[in-house]
């Protein structure tokens, strides 16, 4: 940590900063497309780009373990879960015009106002602060593992209990749903059986079967 602005050029960025800026622009653009596109599946796919860009930013910040965890969990499982959710809720494949609700202009005003305020405060606060990336790697797997299992064991175990609770919760939500579907399913085949013979008998006694030769005769008359 260096507080002297004189040792760093203000407008002479290093290579890491340029790479961070470029990847950050890609990430931000993908995030904006994610929240503004009208095609729901494309939003999930652009979310992959945004999350992968954030993983690259972690790598540039020398936090490699977090970067690979990000790739594994977010890009690997969360986006797949979101895509499954889009499929199971029968999301439209093409453009859906009502993807944005009516209050998008109010949302835009709120987002721009908060972005302006926060960018102003953050740049004003950290104007003369530099990260020293040249020392020992802060976020290597060894360092993260040592700290995690030396100092953070109790939160780690609590987190496993939380994941178990989430698992049980998801199963309970789905099972309640299955019971309802089962009770519906016991009613629906009954009604289907009632309506099925009607259709069959109707097709047997159908006056349409007598009409069909008449139609053919009419067609022949028309052709003749």
């Amino acid at each position: 940590m260096t507080l002297a602005a004189a040792s760093h050029g203000f407008l002479s960025p290093t290579g890491v900063e340029i790479a961070f800026l470029l990847v950050g622009l890609v990430t931000l653009g993908a995030a904006v497309v994610t929240v503004t596109t009208k095609q729901l599946v494309h939003a999930a796919l652009w979310l992959v780009v945004a999350l992968g860009g954030i993983a690259v930013e972690y790598l540039l910040l020398t936090a490699e373990f977090i970067a690979w965890v990000q790739v594994l969990i977010y890009v690997g499982s969360v986006v797949v879960l979101l895509l499954f959710g889009l499929m199971l809720t029968k999301a439209p494949i093409g453009r859906s015009e009502n993807a944005d609700s009516g209050n998008r202009w109010a949302a835009l005003i709120v987002a721009v106002a908060s972005a302006a305020a926060l960018v102003w405060v953050v740049t004003d606060a950290f104007r003369t602060t530099w990260i020293d990336l040249d020392g020992a790697v802060q976020g290597s797997t060894e360092a993260s593992g040592r700290s995690l299992f030396q100092y953070w064991v109790l939160p780690f175990e609590a987190l496993s209990v939380l994941l178990l609770a989430a698992l049980v919760g998801a199963i309970v939500l789905s099972r309640k749903n299955d019971d309802r579907e089962r009770s519906d399913g016991s009613e629906r085949p009954g009604s289907g059986k009632q309506s099925g013979p009607r259709e069959q008998s109707g097709s047997r006694e159908q006056p349409g079967s007598r009409e069909r030769p008449g139609d053919r005769a009419r067609l022949r008359e028309d052709q003749g």
Binding site: P13, V16, A31, V32, T34, V35, A50, L61, R104, A107
Partner: peptide
């Protein structure tokens, strides 16, 4: 690296997410 780069990127990403939560 200047600390403002990740901080500003995080702020902008947060506000993009805020817009998405409110507008979607």
């Amino acid at each position: 690296m200047h600390l403002a780069y990740p901080a500003v990127l995080a702020v902008l990403l947060f506000c993009v997410g805020l817009y998405g939560v409110l507008a979607r």
